[in-house]
């Protein structure tokens, strides 16, 4: 039995969302991850996606109906298992120049100096509350409230891969060059997603811990070159 009545929302006949809260809370996200682990290896469940507040369970509807899935959820024992120690990644970030195109504007809006924003941001320790949207895109919780600002009113059509953004209560890194509306305050040379990196296509998984290490442009360039030549970010960025 799942405690304290989450809502069960059908997503067609092929998925069910178990909703623990209407908005992000660390507790709702943790409950989603606990349920995710409990459902590992159940026949007919083909995908499980833990989000900021829910778990979406995709089934093969010809093998497992949503009705049977609901019955199965009812019969689950309460999750007591503690979370296994998450991975901790330290990512180099260049918070300067063209790699931080929105830093000055964001600092002005927040009533801080650009240097102040960088100091607060790079001192934080973050937690991947969700990976979603694009391959390997982590929503990192733990942003200092002094850095919280809404998304840009006009999103960019192309945010360069590696860009570090902030929006509302999260900070995130864009693994690919895609459209996006977060304020960009830095960039990492680390390839966060590589479909051919078999052991770990997405560097950061839901539940992981992340910190940032400011690096000057020259070090950013040197690290970029290293990754292009095949340096392994899994080995280099593990804390």
């Amino acid at each position: 039995m799942i405690p304290s009545e989450p809502r069960l929302l059908p997503v067609g006949d092929g998925a069910l969302t178990v909703e623990f809260a209407a908005s992000y809370t660390p507790e709702a996200a943790a409950r989603a991850r606990r349920l995710d682990r409990q459902l590992e290896g159940i026949d007919g469940i083909v995908e499980r996606v833990a989000t900021l507040r829910s778990l979406t369970i995709h089934v093969d509807p010809s093998r497992l109906s949503l009705r049977r899935l609901k019955a199965l959820l009812d019969d689950l024992p309460a999750a007591t298992e503690a979370e296994t120690a998450p991975a901790h990644w330290v990512l180099p970030i260049c918070y300067e120049g063209e790699r931080a195109p929105d830093l000055a504007e964001l600092a002005a809006r927040l009533g801080l100096s650009p240097q102040g924003v960088v100091e607060i941001h790079s001192a934080g320790r973050y937690h991947a509350a969700m990976v979603g949207g694009y391959p390997g895109f982590p929503y990192l919780a733990g942003l200092d409230p002094r850095l919280s600002a809404p998304r840009r009113t006009i999103p960019r059509l192309a945010v360069p891969a590696g860009s570090l953004g902030v929006a509302n209560e999260f900070t995130a890194i864009y693994p690919q060059t895609v459209p996006g509306g977060w304020s960009l305050i830095g960039r990492t040379p680390v390839p966060l997603f590589d479909a051919t990196r078999l052991a770990r296509p997405a560097l950061i998984a839901t539940g992981d811990e992340v910190s940032f290490r400011p690096v000057p442009p020259a070090e950013f360039e040197a690290l970029s070159a290293g990754f292009r030549e095949g340096a392994d970010p899994v080995a280099l960025c593990r804390a």
Binding site: V11, G14, A15, T17, S23, L52, R53, S54, T56
Partner: peptide, 11 residues
């Protein structure tokens, strides 16, 4: 808007 949750094809 909602706080992001899971999508499925056909939504």
């Amino acid at each position: 808007e909602i706080t992001s949750d899971g999508n499925a094809t056909g939504c």
